[in-house]
């Protein structure tokens, strides 16, 4: 056992090492560790929060989806009703139009028929008269019997 001045040297070295470690090594490492711990804790909390947010969002989505579905069903229903109503109305309108057209057609046909009949009657009268004229050409004075012809034509 030889205790000597080495003891003093080693003590000084030790004190210097501890001082250096305390000043320049320990604090930055500890700071980094603590900051990282905080960061990780924050990250975990953020993750948890995000998960909760996601859950809420999903709930909101499903709610909105249900709402939208109901709305859509309502709209479709409404549209169907409206559509059937329009169809009915249009059918009615069409029917009315048809009736009207048919009626006017009838009227036209009627008037045409009347006109033709009148014409025919006239021509028939003329024909009858001309026939009668041919038969009785020699005896009947056209001028004298014009009133009879007119009367006949009116009767036809």
């Amino acid at each position: 056992m030889n205790i000597n001045a080495t003891l003093i040297g080693q003590t000084i070295a030790f004190i210097v090492f501890v001082w250096f470690c305390m000043k320049f090594v320990w604090p930055p490492i500890m700071k980094a560790i603590e900051e990282r711990q905080k960061k990780i804790a924050d990250g975990l909390a953020a993750g948890e929060r995000a998960e909760k947010d996601l859950e809420q969002a999903q709930q909101a989505i499903s709610e909105q989806l249900a709402e939208a579905k109901a709305e859509a069903a309502r709209l479709i229903d409404q549209a169907k009703k409206r559509g059937s109503k329009i169809v009915e109305e249009e059918t009615q309108k069409g029917n009315a139009e048809r009736e009207k057209i048919i009626a006017s057609g009838y009227a036209e046909v009627e008037s045409e028929r009347n006109r033709i009949r009148e014409e025919l009657r006239k021509q028939l009268a003329v024909l009858a008269i001309s026939g009668a004229e041919k038969i009785i050409e020699r005896e009947i004075d056209k001028q004298a019997h014009n009133d009879i012809i007119e009367k006949l034509a009116a009767e036809l």
């Binding site: 001045a5 040297g9 080693q10 070295a13 090492f17 250096f20 320049f24 090594v25 320990w26």
Partner: peptide
């Protein structure tokens, strides 16, 4: 007043090695 230069030399060398390595990381 005898100095064990090997003891002091190696221990100081190792101490500096420790401080250098850890300081680098720090």
């Amino acid at each position: 007043w005898t100095w064990h230069i090997d003891t002091i030399g190696w221990s100081v060398f190792l101490g500096l090695l420790f401080l250098w390595g850890f300081r680098k990381a720090a």
